[in-house]
Amino acid sequence: MDWLARLGASTLESLSALGRATQVLFGAVIAKPQPVKHFPLVVKQMYVVGVQSLLIIIVSGLFIGMVMALQGYTILVDYGAEGSLGPMVALSLLRELGPVVTALLFAGRAGSALTAEIGLMKATEQLSSLEMMAIDPLRRIIAPRLWAGIISMPMLALIFSAVGILGGHLVGVDWLGVDAGSYWSIMQATVEWNEDVLNGVIKSAVFALVVTWISVFKGYDAVPTSEGISKATTETVVYSSLAVLGLDFVLTALMFGIN
């Protein structure tokens, strides 16, 4: 009977965590938004989560594009199809790697920082002080960070894909000698704006919501001790990565699966 009780307890705990997370999301986003008053806060947070993530996004985008061109070339050249290098690099970046790798990097770079920051605010009772001053911490602290993440990540994913395609061009055309005309023109003939680019942006927006939501909730819900914050930060990265990879399969099946 003991294991049954434990199962029940953990189910109840997960359900109540889900409920608290939804409360945080609603309190931060849905309940009485003040876009004008909070816009400067969002800009400041976009600097923290967006601009400061640019370097890692650009560098990894460049190298992933370069590696894909190198790997793709060695296989495609056997079939005399190295002209298809462009669409291969562009489609895999726009549809999968751009949104997914950006979300994983974002969870590691910005998500963990958000959790630690909010967790420490809770541990040092800054959140309670705000409440004592009749300022809702959900709207003053959580909402700007949530919006900044949701706005920043699709933009980061677009930059990632664009830089990756340029990296593929660098290796494929400038180094390995694929014809520049066929690299771009076959890419243009294959890639569709709605089908590929826009679906990638939608994917990225979903990942952005999930990753930022998990990050701010884990910080807000952290046990206010040094141990609790470190646990919450780890959980942010683990849960975000799992959620992104799992959701990616579902979204891919919905967007590209049935043809």
């Binding site: 600097y47 967006g50 933009m155 890419m187 243009q188 003939a189 890639v191 680019v197």
Partner: peptide, 19 residues
Amino acid sequence: AFVAMAIAAALMLAIHVAN
């Protein structure tokens, strides 16, 4: 600058990558 960069990336994808 970050937003401008993202718009530039979207434009590049629209014009150079997608037809």
